[in-house]
């Protein structure tokens, strides 16, 4: 398995006929994703690069059975695109667009509440289940099917992490970029919950950054509900306070949102936190359980109470599940070709 996207994913690309839309729709299709439709208001009826174009998402859903949307429209129209996809009944909406006004996203996120729709992003690289489906702008070829779930607020830093994993012959179940904006759809907690429930995911790598308290919330969730090993990294350890570091959400304000606070909260929750971004892959390799443990893990449901028994957390073990061998299944066997 994997989370959110797989072989059954049928993608409608909102903004297909634009330059970005065309480029990434074709890259997704080339990866093997079923890109079944495009939406560009006013261009309904044409076929673009072999993909039928519709005026509305509702029509794309009715005619081509799209269940997932990839949004690549300019910022001024992106929140509207999210609302349209949700209204049409799309289940997974992946919004790549960067630069959407915050209040537009406040309204859109509010409108999605209570609907059976999951929004990923905005301002994110999208989501990929290697070997199954790529719904996003990440380079597909660096990924490898496997057992590690990756969740991150960043784009290229996620590629870096994936590159480190793949170089060690460690594959990924699903990699999801949740986005660098202050208001996002899917949060760390949502992704962690899905990874915990996914039998194919055996370890989780979470990559956070300065700003907000999403990593602290994630740490609390891991402590209570995640039995699988989690490795974490927070970027922005050297970022000055009060400055927005590229991402709209990456800002230390009023002394909160620092990397130090987040790393401390994550360590306290039993997450293996690495200080150096060069050590993410290595740390996962050390914690990934041997393959034979996979079946046992798969049987583990998401617990409603604390995953760890009393006393185990106090044992100062960085490995969240007692008895797990630290030995890695996959030592670096192959260096990626340069």
């Amino acid at each position: 398995m994997s989370i959110l996207v797989d072989k059954s994913t049928r993608v409608v690309v909102q903004g297909l006929t634009g330059k970005e839309g065309t480029f990434h729709a074709l890259a997704c299709r080339e990866y093997g994703t079923k890109v079944v439709a495009g939406v560009t208001p006013g261009k309904g009826g044409i076929v673009h690069e072999g993909i039928p174009v519709f005026d509305t998402v509702a029509a794309a859903l009715a005619k081509e059975g799209a269940n997932t949307s990839l949004i690549l429209v300019p910022p001024a129209f992106a929140a509207d695109a999210v609302l349209e996809a949700a209204d049409a009944g799309i289940r997974v909406i992946v919004c790549i667009t960067e630069g959407i006004p915050t209040l537009d996203m406040v309204n859109a996120a509010r409108a999605l509440q209570g609907k059976d729709t999951r929004l990923i992003g905005p301002n994110c690289p999208g989501i990929i289940s290697p070997g199954k489906a790529k719904v996003g702008i990440m380079p597909g070829h660096i990924h490898k099917p496997g057992r590690v779930g990756v969740v991150s607020r960043s784009g290229t830093l996620t590629y870096e992490a994936v590159g480190q994993l793949t170089a060690r012959a460690i594959g990924q179940s699903t990699c999801v970029g949740i986005g660098g904006d202050p208001i996002i759809g899917t949060t760390f907690v949502d992704a962690l919950r899905l990874f915990q429930a996914d039998p194919e995911t055996e370890a989780i790598l979470m990559i956070g950054e300065i700003g907000g308290t999403a990593e602290e919330d994630a740490a609390a969730f891991v402590r209570a509900h995640v039995g699988k090993p989690v490795v974490g990294f927070i970027c922005g350890q050297t970022a000055p306070p009060g400055r927005r570091m590229g991402h709209a959400g990456a800002i230390i304000s009023g002394g909160t949102g620092t990397a130090a606070e987040k790393m401390a909260a994550m360590r306290k929750a039993g997450i293996t936190v690495v200080k150096s971004p060069a050590e993410m892959g290595q740390a996962v390799a050390r914690l990934l359980p041997p393959a034979r443990a996979a079946a046992r893990m798969a049987a583990r449901p998401v617990s409603s109470g604390p995953a760890r028994k009393k006393g185990r957390g106090a044992a100062k073990s960085r490995r969240p599940v007692a008895g797990r061998k630290p030995r890695a299944l996959a030592r670096p066997r192959t260096r990626r070709a340069k």
């Binding site: 991150s152 607020r153 960043s154 784009g155 290229t156 830093l157 996620t158 590629y159 870096e160 660098g180 990559i207 950054e209 300065i210 990294f233 970027c235 922005g236 350890q237 050297t238 970022a239 570091m245 590229g246 991402h247 990456a250 990397a259 200080k275 150096s276 971004p277």
Partner: peptide, 10 residues
């Protein structure tokens, strides 16, 4: 990328 840029500073 902003995340990688921060990680590079780190």
């Amino acid at each position: 990328g902003a995340g990688l840029a921060m990680a590079t500073m780190d």
